[in-house]
Design a protein around this nucleic acid. Structure first.
Lengths: 135, 135
DNA sequence: AATTCAAATAGGAATCATTCCGATTTAAAT
DNA sequence: ATTTAAATCGGAATGATTCCTATTTGAATT
């Protein structure tokens, strides 16, 4: 996905084009990985003197809603990145009652570490939804 | 894991036994799923008039450090539950630079939904660690 | 049973991310 | 050029979490 495509997705849903909106999208399209609202503000504050967190957060939420970005939380902050197309999976957490069901994917994780040259220090493996009792 | 075992883990590391500490552990051992600090306070405020968030959070962090509980964040809050023994896995996030590597586990997720009678509304699939550039 | 001292706690202030709100500005359709 | 809803600003409000200082407590020791 590129900036042009993202802007078209917004336009298709009736949202206006603004310079800030485009620049926020550009920041994400040129970055591989997660960014926080503060990261975005830091990258754009020179260009826009009075850019507010309200504007950043409002746009980030919009982009998630429209399907341009995806959001996750860690280290006490929300983090955003361009949405990946291929789905992934996790550990079951009922958002109705909090009941969890776990899934053993350890062998898979061990293989990942070996084949990706990545030193694992922690993990998060969750699926949110409704369990049978909360449907 | 039960309360007695958890208390022994604490004692082994030189932490004192307190009634509050034991009651917080009991709350978790009797609950299947995640709880927030507020959830714990709600369950114990009748028994302990002036129980403070500081005490709750200090103990929750200690329990995570010692390996009794595990922590995750969603909906803007930290959530805790008794630590699971079997590891799980995710999506790679370098805690040095934020770079991510994704893994397609969609077929696995589809099967989970069918076989667990669980309606998936969202997911989180992440592994924290260091990528090859940040070792 | 009394003493001692580091650990634990209470209570409230401080911090930090995020959201809210009223006033103002802007995009883009007319 | 006009109009109007959407977008933005700036700062206040909120809510979770952490910090700080005085006080209390567990449990080891006398």
């Amino acid at each position: 996905m590129d900036v042009k495509e993202a802007l078209q997705m917004l336009k298709a849903k009736g949202y206006k084009h603004t310079d800030k909106r485009e620049d926020i999208l550009t920041v994400f399209m040129n970055h591989k990985g997660y960014l926080t609202a503060r990261d975005v503000l830091t990258r754009l504050k020179d260009r826009y003197e009075g850019l507010s967190f309200d504007t950043i957060y409002r746009n980030l939420s919009l982009f998630v809603e429209v399907g341009i970005l995806e959001e996750t939380e860690f280290n006490g902050e929300k983090h955003y990145q361009v949405k990946c197309e291929d789905d992934r999976c996790q550990h079951l957490i009922c958002i109705g009652c909090g009941i969890t069901q776990s899934v053993n994917v350890r062998p898979f994780e061990e293989q990942l570490e070996k084949s990706n040259d990545f030193k694992i220090t922690g993990h998060k493996f969750e699926i949110y939804g409704y369990c049978s009792a909360c449907h």
